[in-house]
Design a protein around this nucleic acid. Structure first.
Lengths: 247, 247
DNA sequence: TCCTAACTGCGTATGAGATACGCATCGAGC
DNA sequence: GCTCGATGCGTATCTCATACGCAGTTAGGA
């Protein structure tokens, strides 16, 4: 059964034995992954090439391949390491899940490339699963059954990822589109400009419902933080309804 | 004001005038985009190169650049066109939003590459906005205000995208990870294998909450369809609570 | 009617990037 | 000291996106 486990996961879970033969390694998986995360954080995933990474580490490009099968594997390692330890959760499932969601959001805002790199499959890396476990733990002592807990946490995960996918790069200073200036000089990251563009394009005859919403000034009043919590509150309300049904 | 609008958007919104001088175009933006979507659907985003695309169209690679500024622009055009028209919604905001979510899910399952390609910014393309508008229209006649409607629809969008990002490639037949066989011969796409791998790796001492959930057989019993609706129901319940508060 | 400017298609060339292959070197344990 | 399993890395190959410029095409004005 452990034979079906791909090499990448074996390494992550510490199932691969380390030999102690050759010369003192100048490189290590940890150093490589840390440097790669640094580059991706600062300059985006596109800026992360094996050559640039090697340069940062003071080694030759091909040396990296002694520690990493290929670039895809490196990306998996990065995604495993970048989130770090999940936070301690306060008592009460709702407060706990909210804290969890916020912490996860912070992860994605700090490492927006995770959302571009993530594979189309359930999480299997220990780093990811630690967060999932922590999220599930919010429901300890709750009448929800396993399936309900899992669905609640996954729904929250989806919400956080969806929000971050749209706003993370934007608000943490990356290049959106307006003007295309690859980092607008003045306001370090904001969703302004989108309001203007969208207002100029959306007309009531073609998009009536949207035009109304825009006319009400959606893109000006609220901070994205407020919007995040407001949308999340709907989901938590729904979960609360289920919890009280089971009680 | 329309000056701040990047060329890509101008083309999409039909704001760019077409000249009528030169020879009969053998290529057209529509043909290019359609062929590109076809390739990405069938073989994945990685298989979409300008060379392969040109070959499919029976032209030379550089010819494409007469119609598309660069590959990024092509991806934006593809994302605008692929979803097609949003569905008509049944009466009642809840039924409407549910129908909308399902249709959107189908879009992502049919075109999983959209989620890999999507830019980190609010949607500005007419194709995307048509869907957003349709989603918002579900709340016509409802006591919710603009902000509440918008947040409800965005939350639903996040949910759908999050779910699809994990399961779309998987269930529509792409390569997940287990075995790495780039398309397991037998069962055309399924989440099996993940259950086995995850059970083998997750231990109660390290991930207690997760281990319990897994022990209860999460990865076997339910169809992903059922799970999708169940999680979505939580969100809709929460929205319903808000609606009834406002009534 | 013919000329020309605005287009179109595309051949060639460049430069980035991932990575296969094989050599030279190192050092723990026999 | 020898040896075998590492390690670092130079070189070479292949895939890609895309800049540049030439050549053919045609609508509309002279």
């Amino acid at each position: 059964m452990p034979n079906d486990i791909p090499r990448t996961l074996k390494v992550l879970w510490g199932l691969e034995e380390r030999r102690t033969r050759g010369p003192q390694p100048a490189l290590s998986l940890e150093r490589i992954v840390a440097a790669a995360i640094e580059i991706a954080d600062r300059d985006g995933l596109l800026a992360l090439s094996m050559a640039r990474l090697a340069e940062r580490l003071g080694s030759a490009p091909m040396s990296l391949y002694r520690h990493v099968a290929d670039k895809d594997e490196l990306l998996v390692f990065m995604q495993d390491a970048a989130p770090g330890e999940p936070p301690e959760l306060p008592a009460g499932w709702r407060a706990g899940l909210h804290t969890w969601a916020r912490a996860l959001q912070a992860v994605y805002y700090r490492h927006p490339w995770i959302l571009q790199a993530s594979a189309g499959r359930p999480p299997l890396e220990p780093g990811q699963l630690a967060w999932l476990d922590r999220g599930l733990s919010a429901f300890d002592g709750t009448p929800l059954n396993s399936r309900e807990r899992f669905q609640a946490v996954m729904a929250t995960l989806y919400y956080v990822r969806g929000e971050a996918q749209i706003f993370a790069v934007l608000l943490s200073g990356g290049s959106g589109v307006p003007g295309d200036a690859t980092r607008s000089a003045g306001s370090e990251g904001s969703a302004d400009g989108f309001g203007e563009i969208i207002s100029a394009l959306v007309t009531a005859d073609r998009f009536p419902a949207l035009a109304t919403v825009i006319a009400d000034g959606l893109f000006k009043v609220e901070t994205e933080d407020g919007a995040f919590d407001a949308g999340l509150a709907r989901l938590l309300d729904g979960i609360e309804l289920l919890v009280s049904t089971r009680s």
